[in-house]
């Protein structure tokens, strides 16, 4: 094991802690968009897929790479779009009419 893998493990572990800190603050109200949104983020594997599909290697690895690009793109595009569609629906109560607009 050389130094670089240890650095990677450090990053992995620290990122898990960051994840716990950030995500415990998301209210249950938004847990479904959280799930679809974080799901789209896990589609970051598309970065690897692009390289695999475009590196100009053997036929099979390029085919697998292209399949990976398709899967990851479905994950990324679908995930972000559906999350946006859901979040758009969450609206606060309209406090207008007689009492006048009141921004919280």
């Amino acid at each position: 094991m050389d130094g670089s893998i240890m650095v990677s493990i450090y990053i992995f572990v620290l990122a898990i802690f960051v994840g716990f800190e950030v995500i415990t603050k998301v209210p249950p109200l938004l847990h479904t968009p959280l799930m679809s949104g974080s799901n789209a983020i896990s589609g970051i594997t598309i970065v690897g897929a692009l390289i695999a599909a475009g590196a100009g290697h053997s036929g099979l690895s390029t085919t697998l790479g292209m399949l990976a690009v398709i899967c990851a793109t479905i994950n990324v595009v679908g995930g972000f779009m559906v999350t946006d569609r859901m979040l758009e629906m969450f609206k606060p109560a309209k406090k207008d009419e007689k009492s006048g607009t009141k921004q919280s």
């Binding site: 589609g43 690897g48 690895s61 697998l64 990976a68 995930g79 559906v82 859901m86």
Partner: peptide, 26 residues
């Protein structure tokens, strides 16, 4: 929505596995 998210999840997992396999071939 639950089955949609499940399916998107699945595609993400598949992509990761495919990338790792392609990397092996290269």
């Amino acid at each position: 929505m639950p089955q949609m998210v499940a399916l998107f999840n699945g595609f993400g997992g598949a992509a990761s596995a495919l990338v790792a396999y392609a990397e092996y071939l290269q």
